[in-house]
């Protein structure tokens, strides 16, 4: 049976976001656009491959990538523990 494609959600905590633009500029799938304040807006969420580049590089801890249907262990690199 073909493996189901993984799906991801991008959660942005706007209280901490400083609109630096790193997530927008480096996302390999152009998931984010910018709003009038320069903050990321999810415009292309389905294209996300879950690479977490945005999560690791957000200097303000404002992004969490969640895998849909996963048990909540996707943390950035602690997976095998």
């Amino acid at each position: 049976m073909a493996k189901k494609k993984k799906e991801f959600e991008q959660h942005i905590f706007y209280d901490w976001c400083k609109a630096c633009g790193l997530c927008v500029a480096f996302c390999p799938r152009e998931v984010y656009g910018r709003d009038e304040l320069g903050r990321p807006q999810v415009v292309n969420g389905e294209a996300c491959i879950g690479c977490r580049f945005c999560e690791y590089h957000c200097p303000d801890f404002a992004i969490t990538i969640k895998e849909r249907g996963a048990s909540g262990n996707g943390n950035g690199m602690g997976g095998e523990r």
Binding site: K18, C20, Y56, P59, D60, G76
Partner: peptide, 10 residues
């Protein structure tokens, strides 16, 4: 905004 110090802390 964008300072690498936060990335190091993560």
């Amino acid at each position: 905004p964008g300072c690498g110090n936060g990335i190091v802390l993560g």
